[in-house]
Amino acid sequence: MVYLFLDIETIIDDNLIEKAGSEKLKNQFYNNEFIKQSVFHVPVCFSFICNVNLQDFYFKSYISKNASLIVDKFFSNFYLLFEKSKLKYSNYPIIVTHNGQNFDMPILTLQAIRFYDLLSEQAKMGIKEYLDTSDRWENSRPNYTSKNSMYHIDTYLLTNSYSSLKALCTLNGIDCKTQMDGKQVAEYFKDNKLKEIALYCAEDVLSLAKLFNRINIARGNGSLILPNDLNQCEIEILT
């Protein structure tokens, strides 16, 4: 199996809020309340852990002031992993997120469509493969956008608890969200504290991977080889 653990950090598109947001949304924005609709979020960072065949792993965090670079890097990496998994392991990558079916992936997808003309050819192939719904029942390839996809595991839905990542991790004795608070992302982004955001995102994806590992063991599967701590995360600022 090839697992791709993913988490993103976002800021709100205030221009879009002004142009297309309801009065309720505008009030939520000005009161610094969380906005659920993915269309109003702009990705500024994504972190991932890629675990290959329960053994090797890659741990990286990308951050940028330019959202087009974020989505280009994500879907370029996704395409490379997709092709490598298919050719080398006769399998396809399984995306693992916490509330990623409703948040992370829709945001990345919407922004990839928005910046499509700026994307590299690899990224364009990545978004094409992700959006491919030709195999409805997933007999020979993933249908990632299906809520019932075998290739996107969402721990928010899997446990039927609809609980926060922090609550589930704390329940299981896993450190989570010790770096900063999610409400500080916009402030840190404005102050150019990009590495701090990248570490915060990396901590979330590491906590997610450790949580899924416990679920995976409970399913009767082998334990995954995962990073021990944040020091193993490579941070890259895209410019």
Rank of each mutant, 00 (worst) to 15 (best):
V2Y: 03
Y3D: 11
F5G: 06
L6F: 13
T10M: 01
I12A: 02
I12W: 02
D14T: 03
E18N: 15
E23D: 15
L25T: 10
L25E: 08
K26Q: 14
Y30R: 12
Y30N: 10
Y30K: 10
F34A: 13
S38I: 00
V42D: 04
P43G: 11
S47A: 14
S47F: 02
D56W: 02
F57W: 09
F59K: 12
Y62Q: 00
I63E: 01
S64P: 10
N66G: 00
K73L: 01
F78Q: 04
L80I: 01
L80Q: 09
K86E: 11
L87Q: 11
Y89P: 00
S90A: 14
Y92A: 12
Y92V: 03
I94F: 03
I95V: 15
V96T: 13
N99I: 04
G100T: 08
Q101K: 15
F103S: 10
P106M: 02
L110I: 00
Q111F: 00
A112L: 01
R114H: 03
L118N: 10
L118I: 04
L118F: 11
E121W: 01
K124M: 02
M125V: 01
E129N: 13
T133H: 12
D135K: 04
R136W: 09
W137K: 15
S140K: 13
P142Q: 08
Y144N: 08
T145V: 15
S146G: 05
S149F: 00
M150S: 12
M150I: 06
Y151L: 10
Y151T: 09
H152T: 05
H152I: 06
D154L: 06
T155A: 09
Y156I: 04
Y156W: 14
L157W: 14
L157V: 04
L157R: 13
N160I: 05
N160Q: 07
S163E: 10
S163Q: 12
L165R: 07
C169D: 13
T170C: 07
T170W: 02
L171G: 14
L171P: 11
N172F: 08
I174P: 06
C176A: 13
T178R: 05
T178H: 05
D181R: 13
D181S: 09
G182T: 14
Y188M: 11
L194F: 14
K195L: 05
E196L: 11
A198Y: 10
A198M: 11
L199H: 02
D204N: 07
K210Y: 06
I215D: 04
G220L: 11
S223P: 04
P227Y: 02
N228K: 15
D229K: 08
L230D: 04
N231S: 04
L238F: 08
T239F: 05
